[in-house]
Design a protein around this nucleic acid. Structure first.
Lengths: 120, 120
DNA sequence: CGGTATCCTGTGAGATACTG
DNA sequence: CAGTATCTCACAGGATACCG
């Protein structure tokens, strides 16, 4: 009987944050809770469907908390869960590397990067 | 005229390591150069096609170096490039989080994880 | 051994319209 | 405002066979 599921531990990490948009969503949540509409604005290229879908999976993984305010119009807020905060070091590292990479690749990051996660 | 390409810096990182197998490959290369056949053995679920494809993209991104030994039978070795080494902190963080996550989720990691990147 | 070339399929993901 | 439900399709990715 074989129970082994992973060949290397990083596969478990990717199961949680490996989706196409998951890291991007999580990075946006580093600086605090966000409403659905805010996330959409921050990710103009994501579809409503993908946004909801990826958020659900992050919720199921236990790294994001969803709060529904039953009012009119309805309001929903997403934020890193307590467990999700354990990903912060990784998320910061990913953002920092990307910023350095952009500078290294394009020279002037201002023309290629809308905003920095670090000083938003 | 609009030149902006990224909405957030992490997108640039994902462009380099965001493929389905790229992080796994890179993690295996942390501990030194590997032959194609070794990588296949370490990743029993990856197809020949995907392995080659992902390696090519990592090469084009400049994070992996490929060395071809023109002998019989032919021999190819892959390793982190100098630039690729700048990803090491991220890769280690991803592996460590995964290991902790497995333990947290399953209790006994031995049954779910083939081997640890940390003590291979 | 390492890699390409075909073929073929599943599904990731967009567009659109609708609901509470 | 936030989220479903369909419909649709491109393409990621598997299986197989062949090449230097």
């Amino acid at each position: 009987m074989e129970k082994k599921k992973y060949n290397i531990s990083v596969e478990a990490t990717l199961e949680v944050i490996g989706g196409k948009w998951k890291c991007v969503i999580l990075c946006h949540l580093i600086n605090g809770k966000k409403r659905t509409s805010e996330l959409k604005r921050l990710m103009p290229n994501i579809s409503q469907k993908m946004l909801t879908q990826q958020l659900r999976e992050l919720e199921e993984s236990g790294v994001v908390d969803r709060t529904f305010y039953h009012e009119l119009p309805p309001k929903v807020e997403y934020e890193l869960s307590e467990y999700g905060h354990s990903l912060e070091a990784i998320l910061h590292a990913l953002c920092n590397w990307g910023e350095t990479h952009i500078i290294k690749t394009y020279g002037n990051k201002e023309e290629y990067l809308e905003k920095s996660i670090l000083n938003e």
